[in-house]
Design a protein around this nucleic acid. Structure first.
Lengths: 131, 131
DNA sequence: CGTATAGTTGGACTGTTGTCAAACAATTAG
DNA sequence: CTAATTGTTTGACAACAGTCCAACTATACG
């Protein structure tokens, strides 16, 4: 399992995070990650209406802004929101964005996320079997 | 006193607000408005390190995104944050951005703002005499 | 009226962004 | 080894963004 290069928590810049979240495609990816927890790029980018290479650029933008964490496992790459890092840098920001993006209760989802696999909202978004 | 064209509250788009806030110059303007309340473009754009026409473009970007409200009075234009509109569209978002931008307590400032002129933080940022 | 003030507009320039397509790389499965 | 799968990289391209400068508009002041 390899971790891709990411900015350190203290290097995450507010304007870059806002910039990353200001694209509809990227925001949708972030919403999916918020709802479904860790998932592969393939799942996160399914049916986004853009070419897979475009989606790949968006993954990188999100990673370089410090919004998501990406780790490679075999031939799959798993993305997850850097919730705690973002919360420590910009308290409340991610939750308010997610809630503004239509997620019922960001806090509730987060706690549910930690308790059980949950995934009820998205078809194949459960934490994959890891083979 | 004339009001410039603005998007209606219900037409404010999350991604456009995030986009507007993702530029350092615009974010600085927003921070000034948050600290100083309503102020002229001249005051809001003082010492930003960009040409006045550049600042003017940023004013427009903020206005068109629904972040600020601009009204003309004589030859001056007064800008103010659309706090209530943003709060009703995206609860908590502006406050978390402002607090992430280094404003001590966004909520405290807002309430102080409503009680007294309170310009303590910025030199000439008090609500102007309106002549 | 003429001049100063406050801000906008348009052009030009440079750099960035979002997109697709095609080729590529890395891993896994047969 | 060969095929398929997963995602990245590169190139091309059009659109957009941020900036400055110069000219302009509109209001107010003398």
């Amino acid at each position: 399992m390899r971790l891709l290069p990411h900015p350190a928590t203290e290097d995450i810049q507010l304007t870059e995070v806002l910039r990353a979240l200001s694209d509809p495609v990227r925001l949708e990816i972030v919403v999916r990650l918020a709802l479904g927890g860790e998932m592969t790029c393939g799942v996160a980018g399914d049916d986004l209406g853009v070419h897979k290479s475009t989606a790949s650029h968006h993954y990188r933008a999100l990673r370089e802004a410090g919004v998501v964490l990406t780790k490679q496992e075999g031939r799959l790459k798993y993305m997850s929101l850097r919730r705690d890092d973002l919360e420590s840098c910009f308290p409340g920001l991610l939750d308010s964005v997610l809630s503004a993006a239509g997620i019922p209760s960001a806090a509730a989802i987060r706690s549910a996320d930690l308790q059980s696999p949950s995934a009820a909202a998205i078809p194949s978004a459960d934490v994959p079997a890891r083979r």
